[in-house]
Computed example of a mutant assay.
Amino acid sequence: MNDTPRVLLSEASPWPVSLRALLELPALWQARARVRRQLAVMARANPHLIADIGLTRRQVALEIAKPFWRA
């Protein structure tokens, strides 16, 4: 049995993310922005629904304030 550690190709790569992840990033950012806009509309139009989805007003405010690139 060989006791030398194997290096995965992803670990050997000088790039921390894959090309596919980079290509999918704009769609992810658009989805985050869309969800945050919808949450903001819901918070203004139907604030009682915020509690129904299990969030506090503070949690909603913090989520809405995040830029699109933050998870």
Results as ranks from 00 to 15, higher is better:
residue 61 A to E: 13
residue 34 R to I: 02
residue 27 A to F: 11
residue 14 P to M: 07
residue 10 S to M: 08
residue 7 V to H: 10
residue 65 A to P: 02
residue 48 H to G: 00
residue 66 K to F: 00
residue 35 V to H: 09
residue 64 I to T: 06
residue 41 V to T: 12
residue 47 P to M: 09
residue 7 V to D: 07
residue 37 R to H: 10
residue 53 I to V: 15
residue 1 M to H: 14
residue 68 F to W: 07
residue 62 L to D: 15
residue 46 N to K: 15
residue 39 L to T: 01
residue 56 T to F: 06
residue 33 A to D: 12
residue 21 A to I: 06
residue 55 L to N: 01
residue 42 M to C: 12
residue 47 P to H: 05
residue 58 R to T: 12
residue 51 A to I: 01
residue 54 G to W: 03
residue 4 T to R: 14
residue 43 A to H: 09
residue 52 D to E: 15
residue 3 D to I: 07
residue 20 R to W: 12
residue 28 L to P: 00
residue 19 L to H: 08
residue 67 P to C: 00
residue 5 P to S: 08
residue 22 L to Y: 08
residue 55 L to E: 05
residue 21 A to F: 13
residue 39 L to P: 02
residue 2 N to Y: 12
residue 18 S to I: 08
residue 46 N to I: 08
residue 34 R to A: 13
residue 64 I to N: 01
residue 22 L to H: 05
residue 49 L to Q: 11
residue 31 A to Y: 05
residue 34 R to F: 06
residue 43 A to P: 00
residue 49 L to K: 08
residue 47 P to A: 10
residue 7 V to S: 07
residue 63 E to T: 07
residue 22 L to K: 12
residue 39 L to M: 11
residue 22 L to T: 04
residue 64 I to R: 02
residue 56 T to I: 04
residue 65 A to D: 07
residue 18 S to Q: 09
residue 38 Q to E: 15
residue 62 L to S: 09
residue 62 L to E: 15
residue 6 R to T: 14
residue 51 A to D: 13
residue 68 F to K: 12
residue 53 I to T: 03
residue 51 A to G: 15
residue 69 W to H: 06
residue 19 L to V: 10
residue 67 P to V: 00
residue 39 L to E: 02
residue 18 S to D: 12
residue 31 A to G: 09
residue 63 E to W: 05
residue 48 H to N: 08
residue 65 A to N: 04
residue 33 A to C: 03
residue 27 A to G: 13
residue 46 N to W: 14
residue 26 P to I: 04
residue 69 W to S: 02
residue 13 S to D: 15
residue 15 W to P: 00
residue 47 P to K: 02
residue 51 A to N: 07
residue 30 Q to T: 03
residue 56 T to R: 01
residue 39 L to N: 01
residue 7 V to N: 09
residue 24 E to F: 10
residue 19 L to Q: 08
residue 53 I to M: 14
residue 63 E to K: 05
residue 16 P to V: 12
residue 25 L to D: 06
residue 27 A to M: 09
residue 15 W to K: 11
residue 49 L to D: 09
residue 60 V to Y: 03
residue 60 V to D: 02
residue 11 E to D: 14
residue 5 P to K: 12
residue 47 P to R: 03
residue 24 E to G: 08
residue 16 P to S: 13
residue 46 N to Y: 15
residue 63 E to V: 03
residue 10 S to Q: 14
residue 15 W to Q: 14
residue 50 I to W: 02
residue 11 E to R: 14
residue 59 Q to M: 09
residue 28 L to W: 10
residue 41 V to F: 12
residue 43 A to L: 04
residue 32 R to Y: 05
residue 8 L to V: 00
residue 30 Q to D: 10
residue 48 H to R: 11
residue 27 A to V: 07
residue 17 V to Y: 15
residue 32 R to M: 00
residue 24 E to Y: 04
residue 47 P to S: 06
residue 50 I to V: 15
residue 22 L to V: 14
residue 64 I to Y: 01
residue 67 P to D: 04
residue 65 A to R: 01
residue 55 L to R: 07
residue 43 A to I: 03
residue 30 Q to N: 08
residue 49 L to I: 03
residue 10 S to C: 08
residue 29 W to S: 01
residue 51 A to Q: 09
residue 51 A to M: 06
residue 37 R to E: 12
residue 13 S to Q: 10
residue 17 V to E: 14
residue 57 R to I: 06
residue 31 A to M: 11
residue 69 W to R: 01
residue 3 D to H: 06
residue 47 P to W: 07
residue 42 M to I: 13
residue 70 R to E: 04
